[in-house]
Lab assay of single mutants.
Amino acid sequence: MDVFMKGLSKAKEGVVAAAEKTKQGVAEAAGKTKEGVLYVGSKTKEGVVHGVATVAEKTKEQVTNVGGAVVTGVTAVAQKTVEGAGSIAAATGFVKKDQLGKNEEGAPQEGILEDMPVDPDNEAYEMPSEEGYQDYEPEA
C-alpha cells in the first residue's frame, strides 16, 4: 500500500510541476504579447503594419512553449490582441483601416495563427491545408 501511495504522490508532483510550467509559459506569452502591443503603439504610420505582424510573430513563438489545451486559448487571445492593436492603430490615425491585415508588401496577414497546427491532446499534428499553395516548377 505504501508503494501505491508513494507512486500516487510522485504522479501528483509531476502534474503540479507540469501545471506550473504551463502557467509560466502562458505568463511569458502574455508578456511578449504586451511587449508587441507597446511596440505597435510606438510606431509611426509606416511601421504600424509591420508592428502588428511582430506582435503576432512574438506571440506565436511563445505559444510553442505552452502545451496542451492552453495553446488553443493563448492563440485565440493573441489573435484578438493583434486585431485590437490594429483597431487602436486605425482609431489613433497611425494607419488607414484599409491597410490593416496586410503586410508591407500588401499581402493579407489573416491566418497567421489560424494555420498553425495545434492539437490540445498532444496526440497528432496535421499540416495546414494546401489550398493556398501553388506547385513550383523550376525553369529549365
Rank of each mutant, 00 (worst) to 15 (best):
M1D: 00
D2W: 06
K6Y: 02
L8M: 06
S9A: 04
K10G: 01
K10W: 05
K10M: 04
A11F: 13
K12A: 08
G14A: 06
A17K: 07
K21S: 11
T22I: 15
K23W: 06
G25K: 12
A30H: 02
G31R: 12
K32T: 03
K32P: 00
K34E: 01
K34N: 01
E35C: 13
G36A: 15
G36R: 11
L38I: 01
L38K: 11
Y39R: 06
Y39A: 05
Y39G: 07
Y39D: 01
Y39E: 03
S42G: 11
T44F: 10
K45E: 00
E46M: 15
G47W: 10
G47Q: 07
V48C: 07
V48N: 00
V49C: 09
H50D: 11
V52R: 01
T54M: 15
T54N: 05
V55S: 02
V55Q: 01
A56R: 14
K58A: 12
K60C: 10
E61I: 10
Q62Y: 10
Q62F: 14
V63T: 03
T64G: 06
T64P: 01
N65H: 04
A69M: 02
V71M: 14
T72V: 04
G73T: 09
V74K: 01
A76L: 12
V77E: 02
Q79A: 09
K80C: 07
T81R: 03
E83L: 07
E83C: 06
E83G: 08
G84H: 04
A85H: 04
G86N: 15
S87A: 14
A91M: 12
T92P: 04
K96I: 02
D98T: 11
Q99N: 10
L100K: 08
E105V: 15
E105L: 09
A107H: 13
P108W: 14
Q109Y: 09
I112P: 11
I112M: 07
D115T: 11
D115M: 07
D115P: 13
D119R: 00
P120T: 10
N122M: 13
Y125M: 03
E126Q: 01
E130K: 13
E131K: 06
E131D: 09
G132W: 06
G132I: 09
Y133L: 15
D135P: 04
Y136R: 04
P138D: 07
E139N: 13
E139Q: 08
E139W: 10
A140E: 06
